[in-house]
Amino acid sequence: MSEDREVKIACKGISKTFHVPGQKKLLHVLNSVSLEVYKNEFLVILGPGQSGKTVLLNCIAGLIEPTQGSILINNKPITGPGPDRGMVFQRYALFPWKTVVQNVAFGLTIRGVPLKERMEVAQHYIDLVGLNGFEKSYPAELSGGMKQRVGIARAYASDPDILLMDEPFGALDAQTRYAMEKELRLIWEKEKRTVCFVTNNIEEAIYLGDRVVIMSALPGRIKTEHNITIPVPRAYTHPDFLTLRKQISEDTDLVL
């Protein structure tokens, strides 16, 4: 079923090692990771606290270069970050001196899109994430959940093919997190993009993902993957959900 779908991202044999300052040994973070992501798929990369999943995402984003291996986006090798990939960060990374609308329009500003058009596009996504009325607010005035909605709107607004999300709800409390997961799924259903979502939370992975790829502890490699066939909208306490959760929990490593 997935074979005849277009491959958006193709990672082949990605390895990454870091020099740790002050230590002789090298830190092996990724160990020959190969992964394909299909068009408009919501892929979740799940792993314990330290598994190199953020590093993998940063490689796909073009922020870091892999030590070995290749990454093809739309069948072309990447040469660094680009407007075809939008990113949402765990710590929001909003520009504190810019208002919400200016933050959301950032990607367009960088590309030199004229003011009127920028503002229209930004407004569309601000409405999409439910922040109507907060256009002129500064990030410092917003709650964590709202900040991340700005982050999501900002990533969407620069019109990328691919959305890369690095544990975007990791800093939020449990209940806000559930609310944001529901909203994200709704937003994505309205405007589908290819999504690579990184998390350490199994419930979140099952709730959001079409497919969940499980990474091991360091050095990170792909252990296994699961296709999530539970119909949406999913319920966290449904017996099928819980069974899958137990299964996936057994597949993930415990890192102390």
Binding site: P48, G49, N200, N201, I202, T252
Partner: peptide
């Protein structure tokens, strides 16, 4: 006060 808030679920249970 939520001492395990930011940790992954498996570690939290442990």
């Amino acid at each position: 006060d939520e001492p395990y808030g930011q940790l992954d679920v498996k570690l939290r249970y442990y």
